[in-house]
Amino acid sequence: MAIDLNSDLGESFGAWRLGDDEAMLALVTSANVACGFHAGDPATLLATCRGAAQRAVRIGAQVGYRDLAGFGRRFVDVSPTDLTADVIYQIGALDGLAQASGSAVAYVKPHGALYNAIVNHREQARAVVAAIVAYDPTLPVLGLPGSVFLAEAEAAGLRTVTEAFADRGYLPSGELVPRTRPGAVLSDPDVVAARVLRMVEDGEVEAVDGNIVATRPDSICVHGDSPDAVAMAVAIRDRLAAAGVDLVPFV
Rank of each mutant, 00 (worst) to 15 (best):
E11C: 05
A23C: 13
V192Q: 07
I91M: 07
L114N: 07
T162Q: 15
A26T: 12
L5P: 07
V119D: 10
Y65K: 03
A130F: 10
V28G: 11
A98F: 14
G143D: 03
P227W: 00
L139M: 02
Q62W: 05
P178R: 00
S147P: 11
I59A: 02
A151L: 03
T215W: 13
L247I: 01
F165K: 08
E154Q: 15
R198G: 06
L186V: 01
S219L: 06
V108P: 10
D4I: 02
D21Y: 14
L45G: 08
A164M: 00
L97D: 01
Q90D: 04
L5R: 02
V222F: 10
G64T: 03
L45Y: 11
E201H: 14
T162S: 14
T48H: 03
E152K: 11
N211A: 15
N120F: 09
V78A: 13
G64S: 14
T180Y: 08
N116G: 12
G96H: 06
G146K: 09
F250I: 04
P249F: 00
Q124G: 11
L142T: 00
D225A: 02
A166V: 05
A125M: 03
F75T: 10
G157R: 12
A2D: 14
M24A: 13
I3Q: 05
I132M: 00
V76D: 04
Y115N: 06
L176D: 05
L197K: 15
E204K: 08
I118W: 10
A164E: 03
M24E: 08
A241T: 12
A15Q: 10
V230F: 05
P110D: 01
I220M: 02
V191G: 11
T160W: 08
E154Y: 12
Y107W: 14
V245K: 04
E123L: 13
E206S: 09
P42Y: 05
V196R: 06
C35A: 07
G70F: 15
E163C: 04
S219V: 11
D246M: 04
G203I: 04
Y89F: 15
M24N: 07
V76F: 13
D218L: 00
C49F: 13
L83G: 01
F71Y: 15
K109F: 08
A106F: 08
L27I: 10
P189C: 03
G92W: 03
G64M: 02
A243R: 12
V177L: 02
A194G: 15
R216T: 15
Q124S: 12
